[in-house]
Each structure stands twice: as structure tokens, then as C-alpha cells.
Simulated scan of single mutants.
Amino acid sequence: MKATYLLVAFLALASFASAFDPRPLQDFCVAVPDDSSSKDADPGNADNKLGSKATPVTVNQMPGLNTLGISLARVDFGPKGLIPPHTHPRATEILTVIEGTLLVGFVTSNNQNNTNRLFTKVLNKGDVFVFPLGLIHFQVNIGNGNALAIAALNSQNPGVITIANAVFGSTPPISPEILAKAFQVDYKVINYLRKQFSYDNN
């Protein structure tokens, strides 16, 4: 009987899945000679309807990051520019403001009262803020000039899911009946929103 309990406990642990990067099997991975182990971080063009541009530096852009479990993003904001609500399914993000003033925030997952709490903060040059893994978060430039921030993430490929694009711009699209019921709105609203969310500023 005791052996059966131990076997069940072992199988339960063995089936545990993790979304984090695996522990590296080596200290580092040298990039192939044709690839650069460094990248220029030129200003991103924030002249778009969101007024922002996120320029990622993941293992896809810099192979030398392979096995290191880190990545970066340069985030350029025009006046009033916005990085819309999004998540990183595989990483916690730490944001440092280089220039300008940002309003940032994240929303907690459901707690026992079935509520989602919003945490926000105004950040100025030199300020730092942490967005926990997988939580919906955003950044908006509340200054009149341009702003710049650097995001560091603890995954070589953190992923990004922009909420509005994922819900209203998926291919194939989510059924309008599902979205209308989920958001408690008319189908016309869903059709209107679908036309708006085909843009990605990453």
C-alpha cells in the first residue's frame, strides 16, 4: 500500500511541467562567426498609431544569448505613446526608464475574491519597475516629449501576447458569438474592434 502511494506521488511529480527556461547545460553558447554577438540599439520609429516601438533583443536576434536565460528590449515612446496591455508567458520583466516619464501598471491574477487588482506607478528617469511573469501589464508616456526605457527579461525568448491583438485579431478569428457574450456587447462592437487590432508595434 505504501509503495502504491509513493508511486502515485512520483508520477504526479514526474508529470509537472514548467514554462521557465531549462537550466543551461553549458556556461555559454558562442555565436556562429557570421552572427554578431552584439547589436546596435538604434532608436525605434514610434511614428505609428500607438506612438511606440519595442525593439527586442532575444535569442532570435542575438544567438549568443542561447542558454543564458535573458533578453532585452529597447522601448521608444513618442509623446503620449503606449505599449498596450500584454503579457510575457515565459518571463518576468524589469523596466528601467532612461528618458521621460512613464505611467506603468500590471493587473494581478484572480484572487480568492475573484477580483483583479491594478497596480500603477509613475516612473521618471532612472526609476525601475518589475512586472511579474505572465501578468497583463502596460506602459504609457505621460510626458510631452519622447521617452525611452530598457526592459530586461529572464528568458532568452520571453514571448509576447498583446491582449487586444490576440482576442480581436487572431487567425482564424474567435467566433463573434463567443466574444460578444464574453464582453457583454453587441456583435457590431466586436466587428468594429476586429478592424482596429491588426497592428503590432513589436
Rank of each mutant, 00 (worst) to 15 (best):
P85S: 11
P85K: 10
S52F: 05
L50V: 03
G51N: 03
G78L: 02
Q61I: 02
L82R: 00
V59G: 02
P79R: 07
R74D: 05
G64F: 10
K53L: 10
A73I: 04
P84V: 06
T58W: 05
G51M: 00
V75L: 13
F77M: 06
S71I: 05
M62Y: 01
P85F: 11
L72F: 15
Q61A: 11
P56L: 10
I70G: 06
K80T: 04
P85Q: 09
G81A: 10
D47R: 04
T55E: 08
T55Y: 10
G64K: 08
L72M: 15
S52G: 08
L50W: 05
G78S: 15
V59K: 07
T58N: 09
S71Q: 07
L68S: 10
I83R: 02
M62H: 00
T58V: 15
A73K: 00
L72G: 06
T55K: 00
K80H: 12
P63N: 12
N66H: 12
T67N: 06
K80D: 03
N60T: 15
Q61L: 12
V75G: 07
P56K: 04
K53H: 13
F77S: 00
T58D: 07
L68W: 08
I83F: 09
T55G: 05
K80C: 03
F77I: 00
P85G: 12
G69L: 05
P85R: 09
R74M: 07
T67I: 14
A54V: 15
P84I: 04
G69T: 12
N48P: 08
T55V: 14
K49N: 13
L68P: 00
P85Y: 11
P63T: 07
K80F: 03
K80G: 06
T55R: 02
L65S: 00
K53E: 02
L72T: 11
G81F: 01
P63Q: 06
D76A: 03
V57M: 15
G81H: 00
F77C: 00
L50E: 01
R74P: 04
G78K: 04
P85N: 10
A54S: 10
T58C: 07
V75C: 06
T55H: 06
D47G: 04
N60E: 12
I70Y: 13
K49M: 14
V59S: 08
K53G: 00
L50Q: 03
V75W: 04
